[in-house]
Amino acid sequence: MDTLFIVALTTCILLAPIAAEIVLKGRRLQSNVKRVAPLYIVIALCCITIGAYTHYPHPIVIVMYWCGYFLTWFGIRSHLESSILLKMLTTLQTSNLSRDELMSSYLQSYSTQSRIAELKNSGLLESKKGIISITPSGEKLLSIIDLLD
């Protein structure tokens, strides 16, 4: 394997999550995938171009590698921001709490209302006359999920 390609790939691997954090600016990943996905596509294209330049022409392999990398990063990042267990671990770091206290502490930091607000912000839910309903884009997402679920 060409050294230039390895250096380029390593740079891309390190650069992508850092650039994604800059784009996200502390926002939640799951509701801002649209901002991050183009970034990963651009970096993947750079990788493929360098691969072609260094005569390591396996574009499908590079695409596959990059898809795997993106999915893994996405999974770890979104797991970090939404994992109940990890949130509880960090809460327990500061003080000992009972089960009920831990539960109410979690619900205070990430309540039902904030989850619904997040879904509204990402355009998947909407509020009409005080009734929360699903949007067409939410329905589209659910139809994809139904196929996989």
Partner: peptide, 19 residues
């Protein structure tokens, strides 16, 4: 390198399944 690409895809899809 090729196998790493495969493992990356598997772990990524696994996270999606758990999600």
């Amino acid at each position: 390198f090729y196998s790493m690409a495969c493992l990356g895809c598997i772990s990524g899809l696994l996270f999606i399944r758990v999600m």
